[in-house]
Amino acid sequence: MDLNFKILLALLVAFCFTGGIFYLFMDLYLHIYDPEWNGIFSEKEIIKKESIFFIGASNVYSIDVDRISDELIMNQLDYEIYNLADMSDTPTRRVNSMMHLVELEPKVIIYGISMTDFEKSRDYRSEFFNRGLFGNIVEPDKFFVNFLSSIFNLDFSEKFPTSPKDRMIQSIKYILRGPDYPTHPFMNYRENNILSQDEIKSIYGEGVGFRGIDNDIENSEFLAVNKIIETFQSNGIKVLIFTPPYNELVFEHVKQSEIENFEKIIDNISQRFDIDILYLHDKYAENEIWSDPYHVAINRNAQIYTDDIKEWMIKELKE
């Protein structure tokens, strides 16, 4: 075989192998997570109680489950609560690890369903044509991305987790010494700063946008939500749903009709599965509790989010 060809073949093999390992590792953590695991190098003991899982994307993550747990105990509700929110999580991604959650036999699953879960995907073809000839000439990088993406109907940025490194390090740490924060295993649960509304606007003003709600009932995310809830309920797991909050900057880019469309989708889920919903998506828009437009800060001055969830949970669990 020609050596040049061998070299290219080696490159291709390395590329495919790396791609395979990457794909495997990015979701591995979700599939092997076990609240009782403490890592190879740890000998901590866990007292097994009935458990409650929070699931959803990173906007669910700042809910302080230890604080809720303490309050629940005071109300004679003794549960071990875990916040299993994961970065860039979507219903279609969560379907892949759904059966693993069922095997862990939680009593209740509290699912944060976000407006962005049903956001329309980017229409590269329209963007390409809407930019016009001059727009495409002046910004060739955007032209290239829109053109290729419209041909192959691909958006790489939406296919991969935001930070493979974070996921990889979490996986390694998890295997060696168990999660850093046992009740918040998938992301770093560290206090971060609250930004003022002005700071949020000046830092994130240009990066925020919303493409609108995809109302199609055949929408894959909508079908995935239904499947997840059906599976949990059929396995005797109580499901509660809430809508995670957004900062007012996001709402500047969302039409009222889009918010109504989102609420219709959630109402539909509520009626179909007989689930109570806690609507928080626009509740704290103007509060000073944000680390960025999509995330309530992990901060003692931003506990209102946790406290509202806590009150609602106590009420729901006592019913």
Binding site: L3, I21, F22, P164, K165
Partner: peptide, 22 residues
């Protein structure tokens, strides 16, 4: 040799891709 070089290349790619910051 190409087979050994392939291992080098794979290790580098794995480090780069798996620890990519996003």
């Amino acid at each position: 040799q190409v087979k050994h070089w392939l291992i080098f290349l794979t290790i580098i790619m794995l480090l780069v891709v798996l620890f990519y910051r996003g």
